[in-house]
Design a protein around this nucleic acid. Structure first.
Lengths: 194, 194
DNA sequence: TCGTTTACAGACCGACTGTCGGTCTATGAA
DNA sequence: TTCATAGACCGACAGTCGGTCTGTAAACGA
């Protein structure tokens, strides 16, 4: 079980790369399985042998993309010991990464609607969200009972600014705004209500 | 030009109501025009006479939904003069509204992918985002150069917690977390960098 | 050597979206 | 009252697409 397994894996990788490009360029709906077949030179039967369907193919693409992003983020924060500095570095790295149309379109725009919000969220949990939550916890700046929700909100806020940058907003302004936003979220506000 | 125009408008409304329900229940992809035709008793030709296509139908549904939400939000903040209190009231009302599956699925999940992020954003600008940005500006708590970006981030954060509540998270905890988050975002953080 | 497993091929099916020629009726001017 | 027009509505049809099914060849394990 060697030559065959290798050939299968190679085929899967080839299809995955092509599908990633097409999904990113045209979006999920406007990417036909037909196009993937044509570009890969594969037959219908072969593709459906490796991937259960279009959804499954998309999910595999998403998983691979998230995994790659996770690796790059870990690299970005490597060696930074101060939790706040690490959090900031990770967030800024993520904003730059999300400028990549592949990530923008696949991870941030199509994924929730294609996979369903629940499953998308579950996958995010294992990658970017998980990392951000851990980093946020390490700073100790957020009360434990709000940690999960604040991590969600912060990630959503950062994703949003990443999308704005990707759309053509000014990168430096966005970075400054995000840094200020982050500072505020990490700073306990004075109680004001009676 | 009265009876005919009225009949046309009535038909459009009927189709819109049915499409809204189906899109919310099954999502955009899994809702067939066929189903809309069947439930409305209309013919293909008639539907395509009123709406240019499935996308256009979805867009009309989204527009109507956003408009309705906008009205409810205005109602929620009516009579509140303190800007911060108004902002909080609006945000909390929005979280409750987003518990509605119609809003959750159509506005928050499917819209960006179906209409394209750019056009979705442009529409949000005219409704929820526009209101939030105005409210945020009124508080005077955010520097002008960050107003737009912080409004985006704040809305994304609030949307996220609304989705979490809709998924089954605890409403009260989420509200408390959002209030704390909002307090922090409205509080200027001390400068710390050299 | 021989049965089994696996990668791959491609014809085929059903469902769906969108188009197109045509019908019918309300409307408003002659 | 008559009649031409515009707009609501109809339904057959074409084209596309996702997914299934049967078949083939080659690698694998015994």
């Amino acid at each position: 079980m060697n030559l065959k397994a290798e050939r299968g894996a190679a085929t899967r990788d080839r299809v995955l790369a092509i599908a990633t490009r097409l999904f990113a360029e045209r979006g999920y709906d406007d990417t036909s399985i037909e196009a993937v077949l044509q570009e890969s030179g594969l037959s219908r039967g072969a593709l459906y042998h490796h991937y259960a369907g279009k959804d499954a193919l998309f999910e595999a693409v998403l998983e691979a993309t998230e995994s790659a992003v996770g690796g790059k983020l870990l690299e970005a924060v490597r060696g930074i010991s101060d939790p706040v500095a690490a959090l900031r570095a990770g967030v800024l790295a993520w904003i730059s990464l999300a400028g990549d149309p592949v990530i923008k379109r696949i991870v941030l725009i199509d994924a929730p609607s294609v996979m369903g919000w629940e499953r998308w969220r579950a996958m995010e949990e294992r990658y970017s969200f998980g990392m951000l939550k851990g980093a946020l916890e390490a700073t100790g700046a957020v009360p434990a009972e709000f940690l999960d929700l604040h991590a969600h909100m912060l990630l959503a806020a950062v994703n949003e600014s990443a999308l704005l940058v990707a759309r053509g907003g000014d990168h430096d302004t966005a970075v400054a705004a995000v840094e200020e936003f982050l500072r505020r979220v990490l700073t306990a506000a004075p109680e004001s209500e009676p």
